[in-house]
């Protein structure tokens, strides 16, 4: 069941990324180009994605466990540290350079050709490096 729900959620996530334009690096770079030909589409994507989750968190707040029995993840401690900001800065830098963030970087693997695989390999390598060097930020990786 867990397996099926993960497959379904991943699939719907991927379909949403494709539909919204998040897999099109030109649109993503246009969104980050605040001082050029700014493209506001991604504001609708983020806003649209937050709406169902606002409801979901309200439902989750009244429950201790999810339907399959796993505890609802506890909120992170409100600590803003160097790794959060430094890591996010580094992420923003890479996101702007090519226009892919981790979700879309996976969603395009089946049709994005060589560039998609080179970016994905470098990203996975960076993740391995961060793990190997003990640089993972606060908040446990959700088991």
């Amino acid at each position: 069941m867990r397996f099926l729900i993960a497959l379904l959620a991943g699939g719907l996530f991927g379909a949403g990324l494709l539909t919204s334009g998040m897999t099109n690096t030109a649109k993503v770079q246009g969104w980050l180009d605040f001082f050029g030909a700014w493209d506001p589409t991604l504001a609708f994507v983020l806003g649209g994605a937050i709406l169902p989750m606002l409801v979901a968190w309200q439902i989750a707040a009244r429950r201790e466990r999810a339907i399959l029995g796993t505890p609802i993840p506890a909120p992170s401690e409100p600590v803003i540290d160097g790794r959060l900001i430094g890591g996010s800065a580094l992420f923003g830098f890479g996101w702007a350079l090519v226009g892919l963030c981790p979700g879309p970087a996976m969603a395009v693997l089946g049709f994005g050709g060589g560039p998609a695989w080179i970016f994905f390999a470098a990203m996975a390598g960076g993740m391995m490096l961060a793990g190997g060097l003990g640089l993972i930020g606060r908040g446990k990786t959700r088991a």
């Binding site: 867990r2 729900i5 993960a6 379904l8 959620a9 991943g10 699939g11 719907l12 996530f13 379909a15 949403g16 990324l17 494709l18 539909t19 919204s20 334009g21 998040m22 649109k27 493209d39 506001p40 589409t41 991604l42 504001a43 609708f44 994507v45 983020l46 806003g47 649209g48 994605a49 937050i50 709406l51 169902p52 989750m53 409801v55 979901a56 968190w57 439902i59 989750a60 466990r65 999810a66 339907i67 399959l68 029995g69 796993t70 505890p71 609802i72 993840p73 959700r142």
Partner: peptide, 25 residues
């Protein structure tokens, strides 16, 4: 464009809601 953005965004958020409320992730 913004309509596709909004629809795609709602799909992304629905996926996240399912993963949270059903699987607790």
């Amino acid at each position: 464009d913004w309509i596709y953005g909004l629809i795609g965004g709602l799909m992304i958020g629905t996926a996240a809601a399912i993963y949270l409320l059903v699987s607790g992730r």
